[in-house]
Nucleic acid binder design. Structure first.
Lengths: 235, 235
DNA sequence: ATGTAGTTTAAGGTCGACCTTAAACAAGGT
DNA sequence: ACCTTGTTTAAGGTCGACCTTAAACTACAT
Protein backbone atom coordinates (compact mmCIF):
# COMPACT_ATOMS: atom_id res chain seq x y z
CA UNK A 1 0.00 0.00 0.00
CA UNK A 2 0.85 3.68 -0.22
CA UNK A 3 1.73 3.32 -3.91
CA UNK A 4 5.25 4.55 -4.63
CA UNK A 5 5.07 7.93 -6.26
CA UNK A 6 7.69 10.60 -6.88
CA UNK A 7 7.84 14.25 -5.90
CA UNK A 8 6.74 15.49 -9.27
CA UNK A 9 3.57 13.44 -9.63
CA UNK A 10 2.83 14.36 -6.06
CA UNK A 11 2.98 18.05 -6.90
CA UNK A 12 0.45 17.44 -9.63
CA UNK A 13 -1.95 15.70 -7.30
CA UNK A 14 -1.62 18.42 -4.74
CA UNK A 15 -2.13 21.20 -7.26
CA UNK A 16 -5.08 19.43 -8.73
CA UNK A 17 -6.61 19.21 -5.30
CA UNK A 18 -5.98 22.85 -4.56
CA UNK A 19 -7.33 24.06 -7.85
CA UNK A 20 -10.48 22.03 -7.64
CA UNK A 21 -13.58 24.15 -7.11
CA UNK A 22 -16.65 22.18 -6.33
CA UNK A 23 -17.03 19.27 -8.67
CA UNK A 24 -15.72 20.72 -11.89
CA UNK A 25 -12.67 19.28 -13.66
CA UNK A 26 -9.54 21.42 -13.63
CA UNK A 27 -8.35 22.55 -17.07
CA UNK A 28 -4.89 21.20 -17.75
CA UNK A 29 -3.73 24.66 -18.70
CA UNK A 30 -4.48 25.84 -15.16
CA UNK A 31 -2.49 22.95 -13.76
CA UNK A 32 0.39 23.69 -16.07
CA UNK A 33 0.39 27.33 -15.12
CA UNK A 34 0.39 26.67 -11.41
CA UNK A 35 3.35 24.33 -11.73
CA UNK A 36 5.21 26.45 -14.22
CA UNK A 37 5.31 23.67 -16.79
CA UNK A 38 4.33 23.59 -20.43
CA UNK A 39 0.81 22.47 -21.21
CA UNK A 40 2.15 19.53 -23.15
CA UNK A 41 4.17 18.31 -20.19
CA UNK A 42 1.19 18.67 -17.91
CA UNK A 43 -0.91 16.64 -20.33
CA UNK A 44 1.73 13.92 -20.33
CA UNK A 45 1.75 13.79 -16.56
CA UNK A 46 -2.01 13.70 -16.36
CA UNK A 47 -1.91 10.66 -18.62
CA UNK A 48 0.67 8.99 -16.39
CA UNK A 49 -1.48 9.67 -13.36
CA UNK A 50 -4.53 8.41 -15.17
CA UNK A 51 -2.80 5.11 -15.91
CA UNK A 52 -2.09 4.83 -12.23
CA UNK A 53 -5.72 5.41 -11.46
CA UNK A 54 -5.17 8.63 -9.56
CA UNK A 55 -6.89 11.09 -11.86
CA UNK A 56 -9.68 10.94 -14.41
CA UNK A 57 -9.27 12.97 -17.53
CA UNK A 58 -12.22 14.28 -19.47
CA UNK A 59 -10.86 15.40 -22.84
CA UNK A 60 -11.29 19.06 -23.54
CA UNK A 61 -12.73 19.67 -20.10
CA UNK A 62 -9.96 18.94 -17.65
CA UNK A 63 -8.75 16.54 -15.02
CA UNK A 64 -10.34 15.42 -11.80
CA UNK A 65 -8.89 13.43 -8.95
CA UNK A 66 -10.24 9.93 -8.46
CA UNK A 67 -11.00 9.04 -4.88
CA UNK A 68 -7.63 7.33 -4.66
CA UNK A 69 -6.00 10.44 -6.01
CA UNK A 70 -7.92 12.66 -3.64
CA UNK A 71 -6.88 10.55 -0.69
CA UNK A 72 -3.29 10.80 -1.73
CA UNK A 73 -3.57 14.54 -2.28
CA UNK A 74 -5.11 15.02 1.13
CA UNK A 75 -2.28 13.24 2.89
CA UNK A 76 0.17 15.34 0.93
CA UNK A 77 -1.60 18.51 1.95
CA UNK A 78 -1.67 17.22 5.48
CA UNK A 79 2.07 16.70 5.49
CA UNK A 80 2.64 20.05 3.89
CA UNK A 81 0.62 21.96 6.42
CA UNK A 82 2.01 20.10 9.37
CA UNK A 83 5.52 20.95 8.25
CA UNK A 84 4.47 24.56 7.85
CA UNK A 85 3.28 24.58 11.43
CA UNK A 86 6.49 22.97 12.57
CA UNK A 87 8.62 25.47 10.72
CA UNK A 88 6.80 28.46 12.12
CA UNK A 89 5.92 27.25 15.60
CA UNK A 90 9.00 25.26 16.46
CA UNK A 91 11.71 26.74 14.33
CA UNK A 92 10.41 30.29 14.29
CA UNK A 93 10.96 30.67 10.60
CA UNK A 94 9.19 33.53 8.83
CA UNK A 95 5.56 32.99 8.07
CA UNK A 96 5.91 33.81 4.41
CA UNK A 97 8.76 31.47 3.64
CA UNK A 98 7.57 28.25 5.22
CA UNK A 99 5.35 27.38 2.30
CA UNK A 100 8.19 26.85 -0.10
CA UNK A 101 10.25 25.07 2.51
CA UNK A 102 7.42 22.69 3.33
CA UNK A 103 7.07 21.90 -0.36
CA UNK A 104 10.33 20.03 -0.12
CA UNK A 105 9.72 18.35 3.18
CA UNK A 106 6.30 16.99 2.29
CA UNK A 107 7.84 14.56 -0.19
CA UNK A 108 10.44 13.32 2.23
CA UNK A 109 8.34 11.70 4.90
CA UNK A 110 5.89 8.86 5.28
CA UNK A 111 3.03 8.16 7.58
CA UNK A 112 5.15 7.35 10.62
CA UNK A 113 6.80 10.74 10.75
CA UNK A 114 3.68 12.61 9.76
CA UNK A 115 1.59 11.21 12.57
CA UNK A 116 4.33 11.67 15.12
CA UNK A 117 4.71 15.26 13.99
CA UNK A 118 0.99 15.83 14.28
CA UNK A 119 0.96 14.57 17.86
CA UNK A 120 4.04 16.57 18.68
CA UNK A 121 2.48 19.76 17.39
CA UNK A 122 -0.64 19.19 19.46
CA UNK A 123 -2.89 18.21 16.57
CA UNK A 124 -3.18 21.69 15.10
CA UNK A 125 -6.32 22.59 13.18
CA UNK A 126 -4.86 24.85 10.55
CA UNK A 127 -1.63 25.72 8.82
CA UNK A 128 -0.05 29.11 9.50
CA UNK A 129 -1.83 30.48 6.47
CA UNK A 130 -5.23 29.55 7.78
CA UNK A 131 -5.96 26.40 5.81
CA UNK A 132 -7.34 23.38 7.60
CA UNK A 133 -5.06 20.41 8.12
CA UNK A 134 -6.79 17.37 6.65
CA UNK A 135 -7.39 14.53 9.06
CA UNK A 136 -9.39 11.36 8.93
CA UNK A 137 -13.00 12.34 8.69
CA UNK A 138 -14.40 15.00 6.44
CA UNK A 139 -12.42 18.20 6.13
CA UNK A 140 -14.30 21.12 7.66
CA UNK A 141 -15.72 23.16 4.84
CA UNK A 142 -13.61 26.25 4.25
CA UNK A 143 -15.52 29.46 3.85
CA UNK A 144 -16.23 29.98 0.20
CA UNK A 145 -16.23 33.74 0.56
CA UNK A 146 -13.19 35.66 -0.63
CA UNK A 147 -12.12 39.25 -0.84
CA UNK A 148 -13.26 39.19 -4.44
CA UNK A 149 -16.82 38.65 -3.24
CA UNK A 150 -16.91 41.56 -0.84
CA UNK A 151 -18.62 44.88 -1.43
CA UNK A 152 -17.07 48.26 -0.70
CA UNK A 153 -17.62 49.29 2.89
CA UNK A 154 -17.78 45.75 4.21
CA UNK A 155 -15.65 44.67 7.13
CA UNK A 156 -14.07 41.28 7.43
CA UNK A 157 -11.22 39.27 8.77
CA UNK A 158 -8.67 37.34 6.75
CA UNK A 159 -9.28 33.65 7.27
CA UNK A 160 -6.86 31.98 4.93
CA UNK A 161 -4.73 32.30 1.84
CA UNK A 162 -5.98 29.58 -0.31
CA UNK A 163 -4.01 28.50 -3.14
CA UNK A 164 -0.82 29.47 -1.36
CA UNK A 165 2.34 30.42 -3.18
CA UNK A 166 5.61 32.07 -2.33
CA UNK A 167 5.04 35.37 -4.10
CA UNK A 168 1.53 35.80 -2.74
CA UNK A 169 2.65 35.19 0.80
CA UNK A 170 5.58 37.53 0.32
CA UNK A 171 3.22 40.28 -0.79
CA UNK A 172 0.98 39.79 2.20
CA UNK A 173 3.89 39.64 4.62
CA UNK A 174 5.25 42.82 3.13
CA UNK A 175 2.06 44.58 4.12
CA UNK A 176 1.70 42.94 7.48
CA UNK A 177 -1.42 41.06 6.54
CA UNK A 178 -1.96 37.67 8.15
CA UNK A 179 -4.84 35.36 8.90
CA UNK A 180 -6.81 36.91 11.73
CA UNK A 181 -6.23 40.45 10.56
CA UNK A 182 -9.31 42.64 10.40
CA UNK A 183 -9.80 45.00 7.52
CA UNK A 184 -12.40 46.78 5.45
CA UNK A 185 -12.83 46.95 1.74
CA UNK A 186 -12.53 50.59 0.85
CA UNK A 187 -13.07 50.52 -2.87
CA UNK A 188 -13.10 48.50 -6.03
CA UNK A 189 -11.37 50.40 -8.77
CA UNK A 190 -13.23 50.31 -12.06
CA UNK A 191 -10.04 49.69 -13.98
CA UNK A 192 -8.56 46.23 -13.42
CA UNK A 193 -10.92 45.64 -10.54
CA UNK A 194 -8.30 46.48 -7.96
CA UNK A 195 -9.45 45.96 -4.39
CA UNK A 196 -8.16 48.57 -2.01
CA UNK A 197 -8.48 47.60 1.61
CA UNK A 198 -7.73 49.38 4.84
CA UNK A 199 -5.72 47.51 7.42
CA UNK A 200 -4.86 49.35 10.60
CA UNK A 201 -4.32 52.75 9.01
CA UNK A 202 -2.59 51.42 5.91
CA UNK A 203 -4.07 50.84 2.52
CA UNK A 204 -3.20 47.81 0.42
CA UNK A 205 -4.30 46.96 -3.11
CA UNK A 206 -5.06 43.56 -4.58
CA UNK A 207 -5.77 42.49 -8.11
CA UNK A 208 -8.82 40.32 -8.75
CA UNK A 209 -6.87 37.11 -8.99
CA UNK A 210 -5.10 37.64 -5.73
CA UNK A 211 -8.33 38.83 -4.12
CA UNK A 212 -9.97 35.53 -5.04
CA UNK A 213 -7.25 33.75 -3.10
CA UNK A 214 -7.95 35.52 0.14
CA UNK A 215 -10.66 33.78 2.09
CA UNK A 216 -12.51 35.99 4.47
CA UNK A 217 -14.99 35.65 7.27
CA UNK A 218 -17.06 38.20 9.14
CA UNK A 219 -14.88 40.14 11.54
CA UNK A 220 -15.06 38.29 14.85
CA UNK A 221 -14.63 40.88 17.59
CA UNK A 222 -14.37 44.62 17.15
CA UNK A 223 -10.94 43.50 16.03
CA UNK A 224 -8.31 44.11 18.66
CA UNK A 225 -6.86 46.68 16.36
CA UNK A 226 -4.32 44.32 14.97
CA UNK A 227 -2.81 44.04 11.60
CA UNK A 228 -0.13 41.43 11.89
CA UNK A 229 -1.74 39.27 14.51
CA UNK A 230 -1.56 35.54 14.59
CA UNK A 231 -3.65 32.75 13.35
CA UNK A 232 -5.69 30.33 15.37
CA UNK A 233 -4.37 26.91 16.06
CA UNK A 234 -7.68 25.30 16.91
CA UNK A 235 -10.98 25.22 15.13
CA UNK B 1 26.74 29.56 -3.81
CA UNK B 2 25.51 26.23 -2.48
CA UNK B 3 25.81 24.63 -5.92
CA UNK B 4 22.57 22.92 -6.91
CA UNK B 5 22.95 19.21 -6.48
CA UNK B 6 20.41 16.40 -6.41
CA UNK B 7 19.70 13.73 -3.82
CA UNK B 8 21.64 11.06 -5.63
CA UNK B 9 24.93 12.92 -6.01
CA UNK B 10 24.51 13.96 -2.42
CA UNK B 11 24.32 10.38 -1.32
CA UNK B 12 27.58 9.73 -3.09
CA UNK B 13 29.31 12.59 -1.37
CA UNK B 14 28.02 11.51 1.99
CA UNK B 15 29.03 7.90 1.49
CA UNK B 16 32.42 8.93 0.26
CA UNK B 17 32.89 10.96 3.39
CA UNK B 18 31.77 8.15 5.64
CA UNK B 19 33.92 5.56 3.95
CA UNK B 20 37.03 7.68 4.03
CA UNK B 21 39.64 6.36 6.43
CA UNK B 22 42.50 8.73 6.99
CA UNK B 23 43.79 10.07 3.73
CA UNK B 24 43.36 7.10 1.45
CA UNK B 25 41.09 7.19 -1.60
CA UNK B 26 37.93 5.11 -1.42
CA UNK B 27 37.70 2.32 -3.98
CA UNK B 28 34.73 2.85 -6.23
CA UNK B 29 33.63 -0.70 -5.59
CA UNK B 30 33.22 0.12 -1.91
CA UNK B 31 31.13 3.16 -2.80
CA UNK B 32 29.00 1.12 -5.16
CA UNK B 33 28.43 -1.54 -2.56
CA UNK B 34 27.40 0.90 0.14
CA UNK B 35 24.88 2.50 -2.17
CA UNK B 36 23.64 -0.72 -3.66
CA UNK B 37 24.54 0.37 -7.18
CA UNK B 38 26.54 -1.31 -9.88
CA UNK B 39 30.21 -0.46 -10.06
CA UNK B 40 29.75 0.98 -13.52
CA UNK B 41 27.06 3.36 -12.32
CA UNK B 42 29.19 4.43 -9.42
CA UNK B 43 32.07 5.14 -11.79
CA UNK B 44 29.79 7.25 -13.92
CA UNK B 45 28.68 9.26 -10.94
CA UNK B 46 32.20 9.75 -9.72
CA UNK B 47 33.00 11.23 -13.10
CA UNK B 48 30.05 13.57 -12.91
CA UNK B 49 31.13 14.69 -9.47
CA UNK B 50 34.67 15.12 -10.68
CA UNK B 51 33.51 17.43 -13.45
CA UNK B 52 31.76 19.47 -10.80
CA UNK B 53 34.97 19.66 -8.81
CA UNK B 54 33.62 17.80 -5.82
CA UNK B 55 35.73 14.68 -5.95
CA UNK B 56 39.15 13.75 -7.26
CA UNK B 57 39.50 10.40 -8.91
CA UNK B 58 42.78 8.53 -8.95
CA UNK B 59 42.36 5.79 -11.52
CA UNK B 60 42.64 2.28 -10.15
CA UNK B 61 42.98 3.60 -6.62
CA UNK B 62 39.69 5.25 -5.81
CA UNK B 63 37.96 8.56 -5.23
CA UNK B 64 38.64 11.24 -2.72
CA UNK B 65 36.60 14.30 -1.82
CA UNK B 66 38.02 17.65 -2.78
CA UNK B 67 37.77 20.27 -0.09
CA UNK B 68 34.63 21.59 -1.76
CA UNK B 69 33.22 18.12 -1.78
CA UNK B 70 34.17 17.53 1.82
CA UNK B 71 32.49 20.75 2.86
CA UNK B 72 29.35 19.72 1.10
CA UNK B 73 29.47 16.25 2.61
CA UNK B 74 29.91 17.67 6.06
CA UNK B 75 26.85 19.85 5.79
CA UNK B 76 24.91 16.86 4.53
CA UNK B 77 26.04 14.79 7.46
CA UNK B 78 25.17 17.67 9.70
CA UNK B 79 21.64 17.81 8.37
CA UNK B 80 21.32 14.09 8.56
CA UNK B 81 22.34 13.87 12.17
CA UNK B 82 20.30 16.84 13.25
CA UNK B 83 17.22 15.26 11.72
CA UNK B 84 18.04 12.04 13.52
CA UNK B 85 18.11 13.90 16.79
CA UNK B 86 14.87 15.59 15.95
CA UNK B 87 13.17 12.35 15.09
CA UNK B 88 14.27 10.63 18.26
CA UNK B 89 14.16 13.48 20.73
CA UNK B 90 11.13 15.38 19.55
CA UNK B 91 9.06 12.81 17.74
CA UNK B 92 10.03 9.82 19.88
CA UNK B 93 10.55 7.61 16.90
CA UNK B 94 12.53 4.43 17.41
CA UNK B 95 16.27 4.80 17.59
CA UNK B 96 16.94 2.22 14.92
CA UNK B 97 14.64 3.63 12.29
CA UNK B 98 15.56 7.28 12.31
CA UNK B 99 18.62 6.75 10.16
CA UNK B 100 16.66 5.77 7.10
CA UNK B 101 14.07 8.44 7.72
CA UNK B 102 16.71 11.13 8.03
CA UNK B 103 18.20 9.99 4.74
CA UNK B 104 15.17 11.46 3.03
CA UNK B 105 14.91 14.61 5.05
CA UNK B 106 18.53 15.61 4.65
CA UNK B 107 18.00 16.34 0.97
CA UNK B 108 14.92 18.39 1.55
CA UNK B 109 16.27 21.31 3.54
CA UNK B 110 18.72 24.14 3.13
CA UNK B 111 20.82 26.14 5.49
CA UNK B 112 17.97 28.17 6.95
CA UNK B 113 16.09 25.20 8.26
CA UNK B 114 19.20 23.35 9.32
CA UNK B 115 20.47 26.12 11.50
CA UNK B 116 17.07 26.78 13.01
CA UNK B 117 16.77 23.10 13.78
CA UNK B 118 20.18 23.07 15.39
CA UNK B 119 19.24 25.93 17.67
CA UNK B 120 15.90 24.39 18.44
CA UNK B 121 17.52 21.11 19.46
CA UNK B 122 19.93 22.89 21.76
CA UNK B 123 23.01 22.47 19.59
CA UNK B 124 23.43 18.77 20.23
CA UNK B 125 26.91 17.29 20.03
CA UNK B 126 26.10 13.90 18.59
CA UNK B 127 23.47 12.03 16.68
CA UNK B 128 21.50 9.32 18.46
CA UNK B 129 23.98 6.76 17.21
CA UNK B 130 26.89 8.50 18.80
CA UNK B 131 28.41 10.28 15.83
CA UNK B 132 29.46 13.89 16.18
CA UNK B 133 27.38 16.52 14.45
CA UNK B 134 29.70 18.54 12.24
CA UNK B 135 29.78 22.25 12.96
CA UNK B 136 31.98 25.07 11.86
CA UNK B 137 35.41 24.40 13.20
CA UNK B 138 37.20 21.11 13.12
CA UNK B 139 35.15 18.03 13.89
CA UNK B 140 36.26 16.44 17.15
CA UNK B 141 38.30 13.38 16.30
CA UNK B 142 36.19 10.25 16.74
CA UNK B 143 37.87 7.46 18.61
CA UNK B 144 39.58 5.23 16.10
CA UNK B 145 39.16 2.19 18.26
CA UNK B 146 36.48 -0.31 17.37
CA UNK B 147 35.21 -3.58 18.68
CA UNK B 148 37.36 -5.25 16.06
CA UNK B 149 40.46 -3.88 17.80
CA UNK B 150 39.60 -5.19 21.24
CA UNK B 151 41.16 -8.20 22.92
CA UNK B 152 39.18 -10.86 24.75
CA UNK B 153 38.55 -9.92 28.35
CA UNK B 154 38.60 -6.19 27.69
CA UNK B 155 35.80 -3.99 28.92
CA UNK B 156 34.49 -1.04 27.00
CA UNK B 157 31.54 1.12 26.24
CA UNK B 158 29.86 1.57 22.89
CA UNK B 159 30.58 5.05 21.64
CA UNK B 160 29.10 5.11 18.18
CA UNK B 161 27.95 3.11 15.19
CA UNK B 162 30.00 4.48 12.45
CA UNK B 163 29.03 3.85 9.04
CA UNK B 164 25.40 3.63 10.04
CA UNK B 165 22.85 1.64 8.10
CA UNK B 166 19.37 0.38 8.66
CA UNK B 167 20.15 -3.32 9.05
CA UNK B 168 23.08 -2.70 11.40
CA UNK B 169 21.00 -0.50 13.65
CA UNK B 170 18.17 -2.99 13.56
CA UNK B 171 20.54 -5.72 14.74
CA UNK B 172 21.81 -3.61 17.58
CA UNK B 173 18.35 -2.52 18.62
CA UNK B 174 17.22 -6.12 18.60
CA UNK B 175 19.83 -6.87 21.23
CA UNK B 176 19.31 -3.75 23.24
CA UNK B 177 22.72 -2.34 22.44
CA UNK B 178 23.03 1.42 22.22
CA UNK B 179 25.73 4.04 22.52
CA UNK B 180 26.66 4.29 26.17
CA UNK B 181 26.15 0.59 26.82
CA UNK B 182 28.98 -1.11 28.69
CA UNK B 183 30.09 -4.56 27.69
CA UNK B 184 33.04 -6.90 27.66
CA UNK B 185 34.52 -8.86 24.84
CA UNK B 186 34.20 -12.47 25.85
CA UNK B 187 35.81 -14.25 22.96
CA UNK B 188 36.93 -14.08 19.39
CA UNK B 189 35.94 -17.23 17.60
CA UNK B 190 38.70 -18.64 15.42
CA UNK B 191 36.27 -19.36 12.62
CA UNK B 192 34.98 -16.22 10.91
CA UNK B 193 36.43 -14.06 13.66
CA UNK B 194 33.10 -13.71 15.41
CA UNK B 195 33.19 -11.38 18.38
CA UNK B 196 31.04 -12.53 21.24
CA UNK B 197 30.37 -9.86 23.80
CA UNK B 198 28.55 -9.84 27.08
CA UNK B 199 26.04 -7.11 27.68
CA UNK B 200 24.12 -7.16 30.93
CA UNK B 201 23.83 -10.94 31.18
CA UNK B 202 23.19 -11.49 27.49
CA UNK B 203 25.64 -12.57 24.86
CA UNK B 204 25.68 -11.07 21.37
CA UNK B 205 27.83 -12.04 18.40
CA UNK B 206 29.28 -9.75 15.74
CA UNK B 207 31.07 -10.56 12.54
CA UNK B 208 34.32 -8.75 11.82
CA UNK B 209 32.81 -6.28 9.44
CA UNK B 210 30.11 -5.23 11.83
CA UNK B 211 32.62 -5.19 14.68
CA UNK B 212 34.71 -2.67 12.78
CA UNK B 213 31.70 -0.40 12.66
CA UNK B 214 31.25 -0.25 16.39
CA UNK B 215 33.41 2.46 17.88
CA UNK B 216 34.30 1.90 21.47
CA UNK B 217 35.86 3.80 24.31
CA UNK B 218 37.09 2.72 27.72
CA UNK B 219 34.14 2.06 30.01
CA UNK B 220 33.48 5.32 31.82
CA UNK B 221 32.10 4.37 35.23
CA UNK B 222 31.72 0.89 36.66
CA UNK B 223 28.88 0.98 34.15
CA UNK B 224 25.53 1.47 35.83
CA UNK B 225 24.64 -1.99 34.77
CA UNK B 226 22.81 -0.80 31.75
CA UNK B 227 22.27 -2.39 28.42
CA UNK B 228 19.85 -0.20 26.61
CA UNK B 229 20.75 3.09 28.13
CA UNK B 230 20.85 6.35 26.30
CA UNK B 231 23.42 8.33 24.55
CA UNK B 232 24.98 11.56 25.59
CA UNK B 233 23.85 14.75 24.03
CA UNK B 234 26.89 16.79 24.90
CA UNK B 235 30.55 16.16 24.33
C1' DA C 1 57.18 -12.47 -15.52
C1' DT C 2 52.81 -13.61 -15.42
C1' DG C 3 48.20 -14.24 -14.00
C1' DT C 4 44.29 -13.01 -11.42
C1' DA C 5 41.44 -9.81 -9.30
C1' DG C 6 39.83 -5.41 -9.42
C1' DT C 7 39.01 -1.14 -12.45
C1' DT C 8 37.78 1.38 -16.24
C1' DT C 9 35.73 2.22 -20.78
C1' DA C 10 32.58 1.27 -24.34
C1' DA C 11 28.10 0.43 -26.13
C1' DG C 12 23.49 0.17 -25.78
C1' DG C 13 19.15 0.19 -22.96
C1' DT C 14 15.36 1.96 -19.89
C1' DC C 15 12.60 5.29 -17.48
C1' DG C 16 10.95 9.63 -15.69
C1' DA C 17 10.42 14.30 -16.28
C1' DC C 18 10.78 17.97 -18.56
C1' DC C 19 11.22 20.90 -23.35
C1' DT C 20 9.81 22.69 -28.34
C1' DT C 21 7.30 22.89 -32.72
C1' DA C 22 3.61 21.67 -35.49
C1' DA C 23 -0.51 19.62 -36.73
C1' DA C 24 -5.20 17.87 -35.63
C1' DC C 25 -9.24 18.55 -33.25
C1' DA C 26 -13.38 20.14 -30.28
C1' DA C 27 -16.39 23.72 -28.12
C1' DG C 28 -18.76 27.60 -28.14
C1' DG C 29 -19.91 32.30 -29.64
C1' DT C 30 -21.40 35.20 -33.61
C1' DA D 1 -21.78 27.43 -40.72
C1' DC D 2 -17.64 29.29 -39.42
C1' DC D 3 -13.98 30.81 -36.93
C1' DT D 4 -11.40 31.47 -32.95
C1' DT D 5 -9.63 29.74 -28.82
C1' DG D 6 -8.18 26.21 -26.15
C1' DT D 7 -6.86 21.21 -26.08
C1' DT D 8 -4.75 17.17 -27.52
C1' DT D 9 -1.49 14.34 -30.19
C1' DA D 10 2.58 13.58 -32.63
C1' DA D 11 7.44 13.76 -33.17
C1' DG D 12 11.75 14.53 -31.68
C1' DG D 13 15.06 16.29 -28.10
C1' DT D 14 17.66 16.61 -23.61
C1' DC D 15 19.30 15.20 -19.17
C1' DG D 16 19.99 12.51 -15.04
C1' DA D 17 20.31 8.26 -13.01
C1' DC D 18 20.31 3.93 -13.13
C1' DC D 19 21.04 -1.04 -15.62
C1' DT D 20 23.71 -5.01 -18.35
C1' DT D 21 27.39 -7.18 -21.06
C1' DA D 22 31.80 -7.23 -22.79
C1' DA D 23 36.29 -5.74 -23.68
C1' DA D 24 40.52 -3.30 -22.24
C1' DC D 25 43.56 -2.39 -18.87
C1' DT D 26 46.47 -2.03 -14.17
C1' DA D 27 48.23 -3.37 -9.80
C1' DC D 28 50.01 -6.51 -7.24
C1' DA D 29 51.24 -10.84 -5.39
C1' DT D 30 53.12 -15.02 -6.34
Amino acid sequence: MAVEIGPSPEMYLKSLFELTRGHAPVPISALAERLGHSVVSATEMVHRLERRGLVAHEPYRGARLTSDGATHARTLLRRHRLWERFLTDELNLPWESVHDLACQLEHAVGEEVTEALDRRLGIPATCPHGNPIPRSGPTPAASARTLADMKPGEHAELEAVHPESGPVLAYLAQHGLRPGAAFSLESIEPTDGLRVIGVSSTRVAFGPELAARLRVRPASGPGRGGGARGDERRA
